[in-house]
Nucleic acid binder design. Structure first.
Lengths: 269, 269
DNA sequence: ATATGTGAAACCCTTCACAGCT
DNA sequence: AGCTGTGAAGGGTTTCACATAT
């Protein structure tokens, strides 16, 4: 439909598309692996395969960064590693703080990938006095009362929240007030932040639910597939209101969808 | 992200857009909270605010499920909870296996959100004989040699991989061969799977890198912002090849972008 | 009066296919 | 000959704005 022209007359190419930004780390990882094996150049085809995308997409992505390839040859691995790292801001040092050093927080702190590539754990913070002073991943846990001081003294602009859901918004507010402008949230809550603050969310149960959706669909289409639940069809499945659905998995079998086609029983049009 | 798009000319209009599917869990969580507070109905405006999206998007999303609202009134909370749960497949029981019970795997297993809402940890599996038999989150760890048997006996169709990167593809292959068709991957690797298998990826360091990109941009635009790294502008920044960039953060300051405008120095047109 | 449900417009992202450089 | 870089086409997603129902 040849989009009408909206043309941003502003300084062109101000923006690398968000979708491209989200893939740069993938390319970087693949390139780093090639670099370790001393591979000098790659074609878009090879690199795309390593990163799990198709080559046209990769070339388009790189075109937003500039022309870093050589026609007829491919891309210089070292050069691309450098350019992408720079574009992502990984040539500078990013001190981060992690708040909430429970099971998950501790695991994340121990996770190697954290420290590498430009990120440095400047502090671990927890609200439990019993945790304070105990070293996790070699870093002593500090008390939450010092959060503001820690953020300011270390010039922290990226914070990781791994607290329980109930504490997340409050911690977020304090981080933001102290100067943090990017937050990676592992707590299962929606955080509200002022304009100018970026939040990214990692949510285990959301990911599982999305998988379940597709899995259910597969089961409906392919009769032979495994993973069928053990639930026997329960008698009254017509209930609409009092579906418990919490705690343990609901037991209501619910009218199994037809062999394939179907649609919410209610409201046909 | 989404994966292996098995072209489906099949049952026509049955498709809920992927973007919508990815938001349903958010709505469900917000609705569950309302349900706990015994709120009977919500407007699209209120619910959208709670879920962190705008109301037009929410209404459009719900329109794919059917007409579950009442004009002039809003949506019945319990009813919507039920319908979304059903759509996501959460009214059935999904046994999952988790492979790789290290720091992260153990933290995930202990994570409450896992067990609730339709998911049940059927087994924890690890390759370390020393771990076998030890209970994690109340579930004894089993040895990886039994992976196939465990998957088959429990009718598992969803697997979670929390192994080191090096082991992930191999574990993935075994899971798939045993019948798993959905995988949630926490290992920092691209997994390749046959068509019909869905993979979703959770990658800590990718998320941080995306945040760093935006953070860098902010710093470039707003001169007063915090988080400035300590790097002094180094002399020769023209280097193209030997950028180390590994291990600790590279020290090369690299030509700082201009005060505001900026863009790859190379190739303007 | 008020809030949903939805065509249509606008926008963003991916894919195609080939011109252009090495 | 080979591979990048990119207009253009094609889908998908978001937003608008209002007809429609209670």
């Amino acid at each position: 439909m040849a989009t009408g022209r909206t043309h941003r007359p502003a300084t062109r190419s101000r923006g690398i598309p968000e979708a491209t930004v989200a893939r740069l780390p993938l390319y970087l990882r693949a390139l780093t692996a090639l670099s370790e094996r001393s591979v000098p150049t790659v074609s878009s085809e090879e690199l795309a395969a390593a990163a799990g995308v198709n080559s046209a997409k990769l070339r388009k992505d790189f075109s937003y960064l500039g022309s870093y390839g050589t026609r007829g040859v491919g891309y210089d691995v070292e050069y691309l590693v450098y350019q992408i790292s720079r574009e992502l801001g990984l040539t500078q040092d990013w001190p981060i703080v992690m708040v909430g050093i429970g099971n998950l927080g501790a695991a994340l702190a121990n996770y190697g990938g954290f420290a590498s590539r430009g990120f440095r754990v400047a502090a671990l913070i927890d609200a439990d006095p019993a945790m304070v002073g105990k070293p996790v991943a070699g870093i002593p846990v500090q008390f939450i009362d010092d959060l503001e001081k820690i953020v300011e003294e270390n010039g922290v602009s990226i914070g990781v929240i791994a607290t329980p859901a109930g504490a997340a918004q409050q911690v977020c507010d304090r981080l933001v007030a102290a100067g943090v402008t990017s937050i990676l949230n592992f707590a299962p809550t929606v955080l509200s932040v002022p304009d100018g603050v970026d939040v990214r969310k990692v949510d285990l149960s959301i990911e599982l639910q999305i998988l379940a959706f597709h899995e259910q669909r597969k089961a409906g289409e392919e009769p032979g597939a495994g993973g069928e639940a053990v639930l026997p069809p329960s008698p009254a499945a017509s209930a609409v209101a009092g579906a418990p659905l919490r705690g343990a998995a609901a037991t209501a079998a619910e009218e199994r969808k037809g062999p394939d086609g179907d649609m919410p029983a209610v409201m046909p049009a």
